[in-house]
Design a protein around this nucleic acid. Structure first.
Lengths: 150, 150
DNA sequence: CAACATTAAATGTTAGAACATTTAATTTGC
DNA sequence: GCAAATTAAATGTTCTAACATTTAATGTTG
């Protein structure tokens, strides 16, 4: 198992705290890269995948673009065009809200649901592989990460 | 302190393992966002900052573009133009290698070193703030993260 | 040493992110 | 009820990441 120092080719860290921060960022990027590689085989970007999951979670309700923007993990200014691309791919449907015509309501399509279910299967398999930790260790890890964010 | 569930507006996770993976990615993005915000005030991107740090670590040796590409945390195809932008800003110097004229050697400039020192001060201060963990907890966190990557 | 293969960087192209600005609909205050 | 303020989305623009392709230099092999 390569240590973090070997992987990022840095001799030593000033302290464990510094190392922990780099380690979190590095491990997060590592996990994200695995996910993105998989998503790409389905022609999905990370952002598109996030939107689809939010929409599935909302069902059978619709979600406005505003709501989508708020829920995106890294807040996107550009949800309009992102959703438009998903619509062109047939994964979502959108229509102007009757009650407030400024607002646009979006729902995931059948095709979107089917695709998402397929992707989920693969993602779950992928994520399981990286669970070399015991249940106790996982709880501990979650607790520590929550502490980092204060 | 908001829990992860609240922050990403998801009711429950299927299990602690799933939660841990999301938690690592989320916390990593959270830390990165803090860094990027700071870097932006120095007109630096994350990638540019990484390159400068690698170059400082190499001193007084030079680094080829190839070496830089290998060392970048998320491997960049586009180091050529990235370094060119740094050169235009006066932060690095570059010249074609005498022994192998295909290769381009890069060094950080005095101006680059000065800037980097300043940025480092701020980053360190920022990173300290998020250390609400004891030394033992930090060691534990690092161990667990290394385990995740296997 | 000439032809070919390989390597390093540069360049071309496309799509997406980040930012501001504009447009259209609604709400508010008078 | 109307003008101004606010809100939601659309659009414009610029910069960068990601991808492929090209160019130039060096290695390799017969």
């Amino acid at each position: 198992m390569p240590t973090l120092e070997e992987e990022i080719t840095q001799k030593t860290f000033r302290n464990e705290g510094q190392k922990a921060i780099i380690n979190i960022i590095y491990t997060g990027n590592w996990l994200t890269a695995r996910h993105n590689k998989l998503l790409k085989s389905f022609n999905l970007s990370e952002q598109q995948f996030n939107i689809l999951r939010i929409l599935r979670g909302q069902r059978p309700k619709t979600a406005s673009l505003l709501l989508l923007r708020e829920r995106m993990l890294d807040k996107m200014s550009d949800v309009s065009r992102l959703v438009e691309r998903l619509r062109k791919s047939g994964l979502v449907e959108r229509e102007v809200c009757i009650h407030d015509r400024r607002s646009v309501e979006v729902v995931i399509s059948e095709q979107g649901l089917t695709l998402l279910a397929e992707v989920d299967k693969h993602i779950n398999k992928l994520d399981k592989l990286s669970q070399r930790l015991s249940p106790e260790e996982l709880v501990m890890l979650n607790t520590l990460l929550d502490k980092v964010r204060g």
